[in-house]
Design a protein around this nucleic acid. Structure first.
Lengths: 122, 122
DNA sequence: GAGCAATGCTTGGTTTACTTAGCGAAGTGG
DNA sequence: CCACTTCGCTAAGTAAACCAAGCATTGCTC
């Protein structure tokens, strides 16, 4: 696939994923609509990748389909955390640490990366 | 606190978080605007909790502020904060990182603890 | 065949996210 | 005091998310 597949591809992937989850759960668009309080035409459009759903809608859909939001976003490519392969998690832990200020986070990251010989670009 | 505190509280909390991260990073609204490709008035409104930003904007802000997207989404109320409560595992990650030498591990830990104000009692 | 229910989809409009242009306060230097 | 800049913010408009009503097709049962 092209490196710059764009946001459109991600939207389509997200829609396809939601569609597969809904059909596997044997749910109709209107049933999912009732569970999520989202109109069925809009759900239809989301499944075809015509719109980028808001945080509120995304959360509602994930809950209704018994899927974690993380999984959904990862499947959609919106959450790109797959660089955790060669990373034992230290970078992720630092990035996700709410006790650190932005300054401290940058410094700590810089030190860590200098240790492990990583280039500063994520 | 009320269980149905509403989305407004969440929005304000998210805005306050972004604001604190931006100011601690010594960034102006226009600088953050350039890094995120989001207009500075809109960033201002987000910080004051007047709008619910989309996932795209949320992700851009997180990247620009060196905050993990997960943390940002958690603050936005999308993800339930499962791990990032008190100890996000930064210490554990450093301790278990095979790429660090013992010396480096000690240094990194010392820096981290000085940041979060932990006593070196260990 | 006619009727009917249920599915996904289109249409047209309302609400909200988001932008471009510009204002007022708070500096800084001439 | 007067430019000039830079900060956050307001105002007004555009683009996009989202909904209510209804159309088109499929699959019934009579």
């Amino acid at each position: 696939m092209a490196p710059d597949d764009g946001v459109a591809g991600q939207l389509e992937a997200l829609g396809a994923f939601i569609h597969s989850q809904r059909t596997q759960a044997q749910l109709t668009l209107r049933e999912l609509s009732e569970r999520t309080n989202v109109s069925n035409p809009y759900l239809s459009q989301i499944e075809r990748g015509l719109h980028e759903p808001s945080v509120r809608v995304l959360k509602a859909i994930a809950t209704a389909l018994n899927v974690s939001v993380e999984t959904m976003l990862t499947r959609a490519g919106l959450l790109a955390d797959d660089d955790a392969d060669d990373d034992p998690g230290t970078e992720a832990a630092i990035l996700g640490d709410p006790r650190l200020s932005a300054d401290q986070r940058s410094s700590l990251l810089a030190v860590y990366r200098s240790y492990v010989g990583e280039r500063p670009s994520a």
